[in-house]
Design a binder for these strands. Structure first.
Lengths: 138, 138
DNA sequence: AATAAGTGATTAGCATGCTAACCATATCGT
DNA sequence: ACGATATGGTTAGCATGCTAATCACTTATT
């Protein structure tokens, strides 16, 4: 069954991608997932934790833990919102800003490797099919 | 850049797939990854831990922990190899066998959802492109 | 035969990621 | 104005998954 093969391929790609990412990120002293949070912050600095939770597709406690860890690393800092004392707003530190570019290089390297040898036509088809899958699973 | 979009789509699919799996597996009182180990065991009962580590693409300590947990759940058991007293051979218990089918139903459901609305031609192309990617990343 | 090198598995420690339960603050309804 | 409800975060506890260091047993080497 071709469907089974596709599922297995996707599983395979997911795990290999994760392993490969984590190996590269380790050289930046980061764990997988932290890169996503940091780069999201570069786009939306000062975002709240619950917004981060939506953006990164993970639960509030996960964000709370990650944010605490990254704060200890000195890559981000938190500030209580002035209007609503419940919310934490999260910001990149200077050190946090400095690590964004290396992260994006990792992403670039990864995606170059992954898509090596694909024609622009194949890329278009791939994008269309992946978009469909992403929509199906939502 | 289309390459960036494809990488983002893949990330998106990976996380959503993982979340969706874990939700379904929770109803079987399993965590993600455990399903892979159990079904691998159904195919190769009595396999060693280091072999499991290769098959599942994860490190020996990870397997050691998973195996310990699943043994506590009563789904698998270990037996020391007679010829080589270092190796553990891992087997499914009756309870372990019983959970295979529900797991495979979860996989089936997931893959049906993921590939919904795709023509057999699209499936063929998708398989080809994913195979290429899987090869690239290895 | 005794020691060195190699291999299978484990332990400790860290981080993501989850659920369930909880705390703190805001807002709504009466 | 006050009690109920909703919302943003946190804590505790579990599991996967990793590395580094270690233990246990085998196999080579001398």
């Amino acid at each position: 069954m071709i469907e089974v093969e596709i599922r297995e391929l996707l599983d395979d790609i997911s795990t290999k991608k994760r392993r490969s990412y984590s190996e590269m990120l380790r050289q930046l002293s980061l764990h997988t997932g932290q890169d996503q949070l940091l780069c999201r912050l570069r786009k939306e600095d000062g975002i709240t934790q619950s917004q981060l939770s939506e953006r990164l597709n993970c639960e509030p406690p996960t964000i709370a833990n990650m944010v605490k860890t990254l704060e200890n690393y000195g890559l981000i800092y938190r500030k209580r919102d002035l209007l609503d004392a419940r919310v934490n707003r999260v910001f990149l530190t200077a050190k946090g800003h400095d690590i964004i570019e290396p992260i994006e290089q990792v992403w670039q390297k990864q995606q170059d490797k992954l898509l090596e040898g694909m024609s622009s036509e194949e890329l278009l088809i791939l994008k269309r099919l992946l978009t469909k899958m992403a929509g199906n699973i939502s």
